[in-house]
Design a protein around this nucleic acid. Structure first.
Lengths: 199, 199, 199, 199
DNA sequence: TATGAATGAGTGTTCATTCAT
DNA sequence: TATGAATGAACACTCATTCAT
């Protein structure tokens, strides 16, 4: 009684699903996924961290894989650093931001999980590509295109190759255990663009 | 330090341990480690693949972690491609060989496992660095030093940064799902060294 | 006693419960109970089959056991085959009808469930006796009494024992996996009544 | 050292499997299977009742179904009652023994489980037929054949039908809740063989 | 030494039931 | 009343490790 049409038709039948829980669960899942990896992320753990019951998780995500996938989908390209007019400075900023993202908590570990699980759970790597890798590449690519236009980058160079080189340098350094300290982004951009060579 | 369980507990007394089995076990472990990852590598599986019993494995490696570490230690840098006089060609060859190593069955998956396990089992990443990453970097670095001497590379560029860019490009492309096809190494070297820019 | 949860808790006050749903639920429950057994009948399944929500079921039946019991109570002895004057023919018809009931979809499975659950849920077997077993026995018994009167059956024979033998033959054959094909009822009646022996 | 050829080849490698446990596990399983039914028989429960760990059970029986099947296979036709010269008396004895088997602990419940699980786990009913139903039928059948020879049974009667009637009477009475007390077997044999009818 | 047996902790998923609209 | 959400208790099965030959 007293219910409006909207109430009845909006799919409001039954107890409404607590919307906050969705996010809490995904947060907990993403945290555990990064910190411990897929196979070391027990659903009990996610439930406990999220403050819900395991069954509540299963209500939203049929399987553990689906949960992990949904958690990965929440990855959003960190708000891109603002673009100034200086292309080279923008490249450095973008690269530094990327390295920071990797360093911050669990970036590399998350990548590791997706790679390690590829044979068993290919969705993870695929989603990671869509949600994290590609957006970053696109942003970088856009900057490089502008760099070409401005003559900062040799027009003959394959922009995809340069994108890979710049972003890849971060992977390589993390993997090598080289701490990417102050000035790292500058040095890398310099190394890759090799501008000094051109007097 | 660096001694395995077997090293520590046994001298020459008693029936000597069949040394062949050691190798067979490590081979099987490395294969499963790459193909399925640490957490998906059951000791039963290693035992079966190696044709020994689980207990035999534990006789040599106290824990699963020790086994995995020992397996990683068997990684040897693939025989470096022969060096010609042409530095640039050597760089391309080295890079192509690296990419091939990554692609060949389980390179990226193995990296993924080491990264994913870093929080739980830091030894893996550490050993992977020593046995796989560093040797490769060293080889690349040597070529780059020669490139500097010959003026192919700007003497101002940080050779470590360039090393990271070149090798990292391979990681980045794998991670992005870009198939590294024919001519990939050439394009990457060109992009990184940016030679075309210097008329 | 014999009152359902609904009977007990509600008079005529408030919005009356949709009576159609009651039947739909019980139908669905009886079907699943026969097809899959008590422990393999999930309430979700009943709810889905009936097109209602789980909570709606619990509104009428406090527990799963009560639901199953109510479903069993809907069992009605199949309309008895018409009685002709010929007692022997009537016995055969009755027996054939019984065997058909057992064979038809889930007769034996339902019996199995009631028997298997006896220790855990004695109500089921009890209700099954009242609603299915006894009515059938009574019908058979009536025929046998007439048979006695007409001299077809030896007046000294215990009619209950003969009833058990005739109906039981059907159980025994199902349990033995003997397909009860054409002429089965005739042969059984002949075997039990053993009339041929009396010239 | 000191091992004979037999020791090595007899399959004696490694710790020998404790032979008692096999039986204890199967006993516990059969007990729980009869008392509670297949779906209410938790492996934990079997393990606890048998005093072994769950994994020990899985070492011998891959799945719960396999365990239940193996437990059923241990069913042996109870040592047949001794045959006297008197065929009728033997029939009565056989039938009484059968009814006692059904009554003793969990006979009917076990039948119920096998019937109830038929759709989901047909092996159970199948094994029950082989191990319990058929042997009993065979014994009964043998007696009936002798009865025919001796003229106690009409030679025209289908012996399988009579077998089903005799054994089935026991099912029917249990299902009807009729307590099969003193003299039950005699009355049933009398009713089925219907001898009194022949003066 | 090497083997198969044995174990205890852990894990994903299901389900009857209760709650909040 | 009726609905979907939420829960806690099970449960079958896996696995690293230890034991007894």
């Amino acid at each position: 009684m007293g219910k409006t049409h909207a109430d009845r038709c909006h799919g409001a039948a039954g107890r409404p699903r607590c919307p906050a829980k969705e996010a809490v669960i995904l947060d907990a899942a993403l945290m555990l996924l990064s910190e411990r990896g897929f196979t070391r992320m027990p659903l009990d753990g996610v439930a406990r961290a999220a403050g819900v019951s395991k069954a509540t998780i299963h209500l939203r995500f049929r399987t553990k894989t689906e949960l992990a996938a949904a958690a990965l989908k929440t990855l959003r390209p960190s708000s891109a650093p603002p673009e100034t007019g200086d292309v080279r400075a923008d490249l450095v900023a973008q690269l530094a931001d990327f390295a920071a993202t990797l360093t911050r908590t669990p970036g590399m570990a998350l990548i590791g999980t997706c790679l390690a699980e590829e044979a068993h759970t290919p969705e993870l790597l695929q989603l990671f590509r869509e949600c994290a890798v590609q957006p970053r590449r696109d942003a970088m690519r856009r900057l490089l295109d502008r760099a070409c236009v401005q003559g900062v980058l040799a027009s003959g160079a394959d922009p995809d190759a340069v994108t890979s080189a710049l972003l890849g340098a971060s992977y390589a350094d993390h993997l090598a255990g080289r701490t990417t300290a102050e000035g790292w982004a500058e040095r890398t951009v310099a190394g890759v663009l090799a501008l000094p060579v051109c007097p």
